[in-house]
Nucleic acid binder design. Structure first.
Length: 189
DNA sequence: CAGTGGATGCTCT
DNA sequence: GAGCATCCACTGT
């Protein structure tokens, strides 16, 4: 049977419920993508979150309804993709950090200029480059083209750990990964 | 394997 | 002007 599409209702819950359920789900962008193997949760009262301190500038979409894409530029170079969660005003989102590449491998290799499958989507910036996601896709709905999201068909073993690359709230264990996956951006300890 | 530094552009809890 | 939710190339174990 076909996996169910992820709906806006799926995202309209606590980020701490949604984030682990995204491990094993499938993310396609214009038909290119794969299985989500690593994510991180952020929310408004989290000093490490872009939504910390309230709606303003680039974070506006994080305070809108659940089920939309929050895309931001990282270190002036890379794009990073988040899924907005919870209700209007909550400022919550899940950062998509790594995929196991499954569909459109040739396209991903061309965009990433590497043939190393393990490095195609291992990291939020690499993943957006491989899928062709940019700031032009800020605010797009996740339940309509060019996005296609499918629920996982089995419950995988999940590992958690500290989030990567942040300087605030560094001890919060809000990074989730697929246990044993070689496609994560960094090993889980 | 770990650690370091540069690239680069936007926001400023 | 500082500080990034990063990546890559390079160095040294």
């Amino acid at each position: 049977m076909k996996p169910a599409r992820l709906t806006r209702e799926f995202f309209d819950r606590s980020v701490f419920a949604v984030a682990p359920e995204l491990i094993g789900a499938t993310l396609l962008f214009r038909g290119v993508g794969g299985e989500i193997v690593e994510v991180e949760a952020y929310h408004e009262t989290d000093p490490a979150a872009h939504s910390y301190g309230g709606p303003r500038g680039r974070n506006i979409v994080m305070f809108g309804p659940a089920g939309y894409a929050y895309v931001y530029r990282s270190y002036g170079i890379h794009w990073c993709l988040n899924f907005v969660c919870e209700g209007v005003g909550s400022g919550a989102a899940v950062l998509i950090r790594a995929l196991k590449p499954v569909t459109g491998l040739h396209t991903m290799r061309r965009r990433r200029r590497t043939t190393d499958e393990r490095l195609l989507c291992a990291g939020p910036g690499r993943l957006c480059q491989a899928l062709g996601i940019t700031g032009a896709h800020y605010g797009l709905a996740l339940d309509a083209p060019p996005f296609e999201l499918f629920a996982r068909t089995a419950t995988p073993a999940i590992v958690t750990g500290r989030r990567i690359g942040i300087t605030k709230a560094v001890d919060e264990p809000w990074r989730y990964g697929l246990a044993g996956s070689r496609f994560v951006s960094k090993p889980f300890r």
